[in-house]
Design a binder for these strands. Sequence first.
DNA 1: CAGTCGTTTTGATACAGATCAAGTCATGAG
DNA 2: CTCATGACTTGATCTGTATCAAAACGACTG
Lengths: 244, 244
Amino acid sequence: MTTELLARVTCTECPIRHRAVCAHCSGDELDVLEQLKTYKTFKAGDPILWRGDKLTYVGSLVYGVATLSKTLEDGRTQMVGLLLPSDFIGRTGRTEIDFDVVAVTDVTLCCFQIKPFEALIASTPHVAQRLVEMALDELDVAREWMLLLGRKTAREKIATFIHMLVQRQHMGGTETSNQALVLPLTQEQVANYLGLTLETVSRQLGAMKKQSILRFSDRRHFEVSDLPALQLATGDDSDGGILV
Amino acid sequence: MTTELLARVTCTECPIRHRAVCAHCSGDELDVLEQLKTYKTFKAGDPILWRGDKLTYVGSLVYGVATLSKTLEDGRTQMVGLLLPSDFIGRTGRTEIDFDVVAVTDVTLCCFQIKPFEALIASTPHVAQRLVEMALDELDVAREWMLLLGRKTAREKIATFIHMLVQRQHMGGTETSNQALVLPLTQEQVANYLGLTLETVSRQLGAMKKQSILRFSDRRHFEVSDLPALQLATGDDSDGGILV
DNA sequence: CAGTCGTTTTGATACAGATCAAGTCATGAG
DNA sequence: CTCATGACTTGATCTGTATCAAAACGACTG
């Protein structure tokens, strides 16, 4: 990973080429991006943006995992987003953000200064269009999470979270279960994502291990040994939109 | 209100002219919208869009109040959005929505067929740009609500909700407290918005009446008699972004 | 390899808010 | 005016999850 961290990649070879803001861009448009982009790297634990910071750049997450979170005065915190490769950080039309962005693992960002980027949007409809798509997708995700936070039980929350990891991690892969998965967060971070305490997360994960729904090889790596049971435990409709 | 419901208004006289998708449009552009738009009305309680419906039109809410909500199989429901005048319903780039939109009061929508509207976006950057702004604003709101749902106490939830009503209802008005406000939802609907039960909503509102933070003239109309106390009870930072 | 720090597990207890169960209060219909 | 229905209130009890506390487990450090 350390080599990846520093290597400058050309857009055409970029691992997030087809999912990031640049997804709809033609070769010509990529050339423009190529000129503007710079890479920034962050170590695990580093803050990427702090609440109230002046927003000087925006960018796409290329490698690693980062979190968005909001914190109350007394320290209670709620994660409001989990950023995986191809996700976008920052927004146009505003110069401040009202949450913290933190690198959870080592992170590489493909960045653009905000001014030139805004000019780019005005001149490159493909980027603007993709940005809307991504914003609306995020909105859908946020609303799904509102349902989770407001109405699901601890068990359903954990199951939904794991199920989301499955879907996001082996996109396009084979649909067989028993696939190696990474848990990119500590249990405390999972708790902050799900509106729970870390003790409850531990107990619920423990229960799912005992029921052999999950099998952990170490703290960070596991597989789903009973996907149907997991899906059932999410509390959602049986079919995830795929009609029988 | 019934007269308003059916009256066709020209864009230049439209009450949401400066806040809706059309906010940035020039006179010429409004002329185009004028050709495309049609009004639709709904009675209180009517469904506007149902989950899984084919999305054939999009539109702006002109008069009234509507809710977005998601429901689990066993009936637990969570409101994921409260639509007030100028808010936008529908999205581009997808033909289905995964939540229900319901009219809470009588509602008038300014609608566009989705096909011509998508063409419009492509040709009218002012609309596209406004749409992005609105999507990102909604995303901010959704994330604020995630913090509320995941981490706030019942009392903080109620206080935050009322405080939001204050802000959205007398936008641009004088900053004095003691202003007549409308509670557009039943307590059961408030409960679904806040991830609580209706009994808890009743008790917390009762407590705030007893502490003379709120004063109700009838079920639906009230005023905030102690705004600082309300703000304190939200659990948020003291200043709502306005520096002293 | 002993020591330390962050993470996870486990147990006992407390409590906020849910649930269950009657009421009471409005409003509108006949 | 009476009845019916939906909205709200109030009280008693239950329970899921938080809280408090301690120990066990790893991974890294010197």
